[in-house]
Amino acid sequence: MPDTQETRQRCAGCGIALQFERPDLPGYVPESARSRDSVICQRCFRIKNYNDASTVAIDQDDFLRMLGGIASTDSLVVHIVDLFDFEGSIISGLQRFVGNNPVLLVVNKIDLLPKVTNWNRLRNWVQKQARLNGLKVADVVLCSARRKIGFDKVVERVAELRGHRDVYVVGATNVGKSTLINRLIADYSDLNRELTVSRYPGTTLDAIRIPLDDGKSIIDTPGIVYRSRLSEIVPRESLNAVMPEKPLKPLTYQLNAGQTIFLGGLVRFDFVEGERQSFTIYVSSALPVHRTKRERADELYAAHRGELLSPPSREALDDMPPWTRHSLRLPKHAELDIFVSGMGWIQANGKTGALVDIYAPKGVKVLLRDSML
């Protein structure tokens, strides 16, 4: 396509270069929408008005080149992570991309945790996990963009740390990045626009530079798609069951060795060895939990996958990666979570030691970590 003024325009919602000829490609704008003051692509229009989105892949090489350029700038880097999926949404190796620029770690979705949460303990936990991931942070701010909790503190720390610099905002998909940026725009700029906000991965398709009143900019980068998160590989119709929008309601089970818990049709937890003890499950309340004997688990799954054990449907399960078994040894006296990226975690309460098996789709990150709560 010729390099005209039209083709150089960018979508006000997702940042992709607009184009006017191919409806099947990213950035398409129909004739009827071209004269609007703030032009958005057809995909963003469908997200905003119909909560529908097509799947568009982002060139990861382009993204890494974009991220790699931050080190040569004088900027504040705001790294947004999802508290519900902390290990799945933190950018591994971010430190080597940002150089000497300060990093503000914004931990979103704290509204999902129980009201009795010890916030000082949680903050200490976040700082420790950040260090374990090789990230040096200037500060940590806990917030909920959706509920407007702690956002005044985010704005305050951004102002204090950035001085007279640009602000790069980075994060994985679906961590609430665009929601937070829209709040920053409202505080720092008179610009009358909003980024496209969606539950679907990859809503922001290119870097979006938002001018601020002091002549600097907020640069919103595309969300990194980590296929190691269950939320990235489940069928779209199952996202509402996997990604919680309401506070988590912990489910505690007293288990004997030889019992199994199915989390929908997506993940299986086997208590293989150990004394009778309790396990507390932190997942979306829309995800059905089913307990059975381990000796019956294979038969139950074969007969009821996609039905009693759902979501997703049997047809959708057939399209997902096969399960991989993760055998985890829980040492005595340790306070640990069994973390499944994109689904939540299971807190081991017994401290008496145990052997557990987790079956999850191949490639999904499963690990042991210090208990969050």
Rank of each mutant, 00 (worst) to 15 (best):
H304K: 15
R305I: 04
L161M: 10
S35L: 12
K362L: 06
G68L: 10
L122Y: 03
T352D: 07
L266N: 09
P211T: 08
I40S: 01
R131A: 11
V175W: 04
L112W: 03
W323H: 15
P102T: 12
R227M: 14
I181K: 01
A33T: 07
L112P: 07
W345A: 04
V155S: 04
E237G: 06
R46C: 05
H304N: 13
L205W: 00
A302E: 15
S178Y: 01
L195E: 06
G88H: 06
R36D: 10
R209N: 01
T204Q: 00
A12N: 12
N192T: 11
Q9I: 01
D370S: 14
A302I: 09
V234E: 06
S231E: 14
Q347V: 11
R123W: 02
V289M: 12
N349R: 13
K246C: 03
A207R: 11
A53K: 09
F339R: 13
S310G: 09
G258I: 13
T324Y: 01
S144P: 05
Q277F: 04
T324I: 04
L191I: 15
E237R: 14
T203L: 01
V170R: 00
G265K: 13
T324Q: 14
L180E: 07
V366A: 09
I219P: 03
A12M: 13
R294W: 08
L18T: 05
D357W: 06
P250Q: 02
A53S: 15
R305S: 12
R121Y: 07
L239W: 01
D190E: 13
I218F: 10
V267K: 07
S89K: 06
R183D: 04
L367Q: 14
A241C: 03
R199W: 00
D139P: 03
G215W: 05
R183I: 11
G15L: 06
I80N: 04
H164G: 07
A17G: 07
D270Q: 11
G150N: 01
L83M: 14
A302P: 01
E335T: 14
Q19G: 08
V234L: 08
K249H: 04
L308W: 13
L330P: 05
A138Y: 02
I261Q: 08
R236M: 08
K177E: 02
A207E: 11
L135N: 08
I281L: 12
D318E: 15
